[in-house]
């Protein structure tokens, strides 16, 4: 499959580019990061020497770069001074938690977003459509973290009833796995809802526009002419075609989703990549910040790659093989 190969090669070269970019961003641009850190923390000479080594700051840029690459390949992401732990272990745990949050909210966003978008788009110009568009624009205009703050206020202070912080109850003792599962699920509700609320607006608007475009295509008139019911027309003929531009916009969505997740994790202290990033910014813990930035970006590149493949599956015009 030449396409798959080609696309895979593009993915690899993008990852390579981001790794290089990352190297310059954290190792070259700031000048001596030790100086930066020393500005905010009191460090003794021993700590500075240790850091210098951990940053790989000896030797020429090129040799630094290759040492950096080889460390990366071996999964060595450095040592965190604020967490007193290897960065790879830190980000590994965080990544899992973030993926849990992203999966949960993406499910909601995709299913509800498509349903509402199709609902509005197939009723273009009617009151229900206008109401959907306006509410979506309002939701879209709210900062994600603020929506989270409102929910924390509502469910943590005002009404109560749902956990507003962390991934599980502190010091809880579980009698079985199911209890543990339920505890995590309860903690997952508010972060997921927050993330979904804002991103769903984006999805609704894109789906609606795409469906409206598709509805004016000639083949939709054919479908009507065949005597199909309204539902069959919209779903069997309109929907799949409308999904193509939605998938094309998925790069934007993925980026927005990641941005949203960071904010949500901060507000709800959800122990994922976003919270890690936040804490590392506060502590100016560069190795952690660097690793979480790199990992997030690579994950996004991979997600875009997957979206491209899905597009191929959905659109027979670009599919190479059956």
């Amino acid at each position: 499959m030449p396409f798959l190969l080609r696309r895979f090669f593009t993915l690899l070269s993008s990852i390579f580019a981001i790794v290089t970019f990352n190297f310059f961003l954290f190792h070259i641009i700031p000048g001596d990061p030790i100086r930066l850190i020393a500005r905010t923390q009191r460090l003794n000479a021993e700590a500075i020497a240790k850091m210098r080594a951990s940053f790989g700051l000896d030797g020429s840029i090129l040799s630094q770069y290759f040492r950096y690459l080889s460390k990366l390949v071996h999964g060595d992401l450095g040592y965190s001074f604020s967490f007193k732990e290897n960065v790879s272990g830190l980000v590994g745990r965080a990544l899992g938690n973030t993926l849990l949050l992203l999966t949960a909210s993406t499910l909601i966003v995709v299913i509800l977003g498509i349903a509402i978008g199709v609902f509005a788009g197939s009723r273009q110009g009617k009151k229900s459509d206008t109401a959907t568009v306006i509410s979506s624009l309002i939701l879209w205009s709210m900062p994600t973290f603020w929506v989270g703050m409102l929910l924390v206020f509502t469910f943590g202070v005002w009404v109560g009833g749902l956990p507003i912080s962390g991934i599980s109850t502190a010091n809880a003792v579980y009698s079985n796995g199911f209890e543990y599962f339920m505890d995590i699920s309860r903690h997952l509700i508010l972060p997921t809802v927050t993330l979904a609320i804002v991103d769903i607006a984006f999805f609704i608007i894109i789906t609606r526009t795409a469906l409206i475009d598709v509805m004016s295509e000639d083949y939709m008139l054919t479908a009507r002419g065949k005597g199909l019911g309204r539902r069959a027309i919209v779903w069997r003929h309109g929907f799949r075609n409308a999904m193509l531009p939605v998938l094309t916009a998925s790069a934007l969505y993925i980026s927005a989703l990641v941005g949203g997740a960071i904010q949500v994790e901060v507000v709800f202290s959800w122990p994922g990549m976003g919270l890690l990033m936040y804490n590392s910014v506060l502590a100016r813990d560069y190795p952690v910040l660097e690793a979480s930035f790199l990992l997030t970006t690579v994950a996004v590149l991979v997600a875009n790659f997957a979206a491209d493949l899905l597009y191929r599956v959905l659109d027979p015009r670009v599919a190479v093989s059956k």
């Binding site: 295509e217 000639d218 083949y219 008139l221 054919t222 479908a223 002419g225 065949k226 003929h237 799949r240 075609n241 959905l314 659109d315 027979p316 015009r317």
Partner: peptide
Amino acid sequence: SVVFQGALNALNPV
């Protein structure tokens, strides 16, 4: 039944 004007686009591509 109708054979639409411009049948090129009257068939659903997917």
